[in-house]
Design a protein around this nucleic acid. Structure first.
Lengths: 126, 126
DNA sequence: TCGGACCTTCACATCGATGTGAAGGTCAAT
DNA sequence: ATTGACCTTCACATCGATGTGAAGGTCCGA
C-alpha cells in the first residue's frame, strides 16, 4: 500500500508518516518509481506509534522501544540490550505514575461532575 | 510568598509561572513594589496545573476547568456553565480513554520485561 | 496527449511549552 | 554606597509535533 492509503487507514497525515520515517520509527520499502510501499503490518505499527506518542513518549524513546514491542506476539529475547531494558523499565514506571496521576485528576473531575449533577453515569447504584 | 519560592516549591520555573499567569491560569497579587505575591494555596494550584498539563490538557482547557476543581473541597454549584460542564465531561471521557490506552501500553511493556527476564517485579508469585 | 490524483523532496511556518538573556527596579546586608 | 539576590517586562530562541506549499515526477483514464 502507498502512503495515501496508510494515511487514511491510520488517521495520520502523510506528512507525519514521512516524519516518523525520518525519525527512524518506520522504514518504508520503495516501489520502482520511488514511491513508499507499506505492507499490512504498518497499520498496526503506526497506530502503536500514535499511541505511545499520545502516552507522552517522545519519538527518540519510541524508536528504542518499538523494536521490542513490535513483533506481533512472538517475543524475541535476543535483541534487547541492557540499555533498552533499563529504558523500558524506566518508561514502564513513568507510565505507571502517569496513569495514577491521570486517574486522580480524572476522578477529581468525575467527582465534581457527579456532585454538581447526576452526571451521565450509567453505573450509579441508586 | 514571591515567585522564587513558589518556583522552588512546585518545581516549576519562574518563567513558566509567569507564562501560566499570562495564559490566565493563575492570577497573582502584587506587592507594593510590583513583585508577584502568592499565598499558600498556589502551591497546590500550580501542582494541579502541572498535573493537568502532563495529562495532556492544553492550557486553554485547563483555564476553563480549573475554576471548578480549584475550590479545595467545597464545591460551588453556582459557577459552572453548561459549556464548562460539557467540556468537563468530554475531558473526563478523554482522560478515561487515555488511561486505558496508557495502561495497555504500559502492560505491553511490562509483559515484555517480565518475559525477557525476571523484571524487578515484587509481586511475582513464584 | 492531456488532466488529475497520486507520489517525491525540500523548506519554511505554526503552535504550545519552555529556555535564556538583556535592561532595569527593589531591597537587605555589608 | 555598593553588592548580590531577588524581582520586573520584553523579546527572541529552541524543541517536538505538525501544517503547508512549491517544484517536480508518475501513472491512469478520457
Amino acid at each position: 500500500m502507498r502512503i495515501g492509503e496508510l494515511s487514511e487507514r491510520t488517521g495520520t497525515s502523510r506528512r507525519l508518516l514521512r516524519y516518523y520515517e525520518e525519525q527512524g520509527l518506520i522504514v518504508a520499502d520503495r516501489l520502482p518509481n520511488g514511491y513508499r510501499d507499506y505492507d499490512e503490518r504498518y497499520v498496526d505499527r503506526v497506530r502503536q506509534i500514535r499511541g505511545l506518542l499520545d502516552a507522552g513518549l517522545p519519538t527518540r524513546i519510541i524508536k528504542q522501544v518499538l523494536p521490542c514491542l513490535d513483533k506481533p506476539r512472538t517475543i524475541y529475547f535476543s535483541d534487547a540490550t541492557p540499555e533498552i531494558l533499563a529504558t523500558l523499565e524506566h518508561e514502564r514506571d513513568g507510565m505507571t505514575e502517569r496513569i495514577q496521576f491521570l486517574t486522580r485528576n480524572r476522578d477529581a473531575i468525575a467527582d465534581y461532575l457527579d456532585a454538581v449533577r447526576g452526571g451521565d453515569r450509567r453505573d450509579v447504584p441508586a
